[in-house]
Design a protein around this nucleic acid. Structure first.
Lengths: 191, 191
DNA sequence: GATTTTTGATAACAATTGTTGTTGCAGTCG
DNA sequence: CGACTGCAACAACAATTGTTATCAAAAATC
């Protein structure tokens, strides 16, 4: 991969057409950033000022409850976006933290750059709508899985949503994502 | 309320500016529909062909798992939209059913009408983006509540998301929404 | 290479939640 | 008016899940 923004261009091209001219202007404001394993890209309580696109590596989105326990909300693999979009758009304190679980390279997009894209790309607003819709579907399906599937079913389905994740992150993060204790996940797997 | 589409106009006006001219064209394709208590607006398995906006009454969105058990996913109160948006947009079989819990009056919007709105309203795509974003936030917060709140906390918070709902629908629907058995909800409340 | 640290399995026990069945009450409908 | 239905409380028991603690293997660190 010579061009650092090729992956994100391909992902966006699946949503809307973007001419080379449009793209060059848009992408000129992107930044490439690298984070080491365990580094935080966003700290809960801060205002999320960047939208990330994962070039390589792996991110974990999580929040901390009143008791101080972490809960893994989401993983962001290669070619996925990651952010606290509500904090990002509303410029409000973030509920989530984002952490690199591996050395990770991301494309960082500022609020101003994203907004300019919505305004200046010919189909910018449509891109925003389609992306929001897709993540809306993703969340809706996740909620449905909480209602209709057993923990073990959700465990196996994780590999469909996050291919390879089960071999890639420690099991306690998987348990956290499934909203069960790590002891219980171990028990379910080995019985 | 003399004008049947006044409520939806006010809701949309909170997202984008719409001129009278634009509105008259757009709304000319809306339909007013009435459903009686317990009637289904959408049957799971069918393709969802309409987006609903609740003028009065109350809708319940639910799905049925493999064992045939119903799970209440969402309530739609006055001034809210309701649909299986994924089925609606992708023209795919719906996972959800939508049922009127009271005699309910809705504004019904076809796929073609909605798409025409995205194309022809000056800020149509922005409207779509903002609505998708808001429901995305709603779902994200619902997921977070599953991770971080106890059933009783989620019970009490329901009144914030759906004001008055606890007094308005049978308790077993509330339990279903909370993803606990109705016996357990009764136990939690009375102890 | 030795030593911490992390991870995952396991056991024992506690807490939460589900299931089944019963009862009484309040609507609803003939 | 009486029969029927739906709803919620309750009890008893079963199943699931959480908590705490221990241990061994693997991985990271020095």
């Amino acid at each position: 991969m010579k061009l650092p923004f090729e992956k994100i261009r391909n992902v966006i091209a699946a949503y809307i057409d973007v001419s080379d001219e449009e793209w060059n202007i848009y992408a000129s404001n992107f930044q490439l950033k690298k984070f080491k394993k365990n580094e935080l890209l966003l700290q809960a309580g801060a205002i999320c000022k960047e939208l990330y696109f994962v070039n390589s590596g792996l991110l974990r989105v999580f929040f901390v409850d009143k008791k101080g326990e972490e809960h893994t909300f989401h993983f962001s693999l290669e070619n996925a976006f990651s952010t606290d979009y509500e904090s990002f758009l509303k410029k409000a304190a973030s509920n989530y933290s984002i952490q690199a679980l591996e050395n990770t390279e991301v494309v960082s997009i500022s609020f101003e750059t994203l907004e300019a894209g919505y305004r200046n790309l010919r189909d910018g607003e449509k891109l925003g709508r389609r992306l929001a819709e897709d993540y809306f579907f993703l969340f809706g399906n996740k909620i449905r899985s909480f209602y209709t599937e057993s923990p073990m079913e959700r465990y196996h389905n994780m590999d469909l949503v996050f291919p390879g994740i089960l071999q890639r992150v420690p099991q306690h993060f998987i348990a956290s994502y499934l909203n069960i204790s790590s002891v219980h996940l171990s028990r379910l797997k080995n019985s």
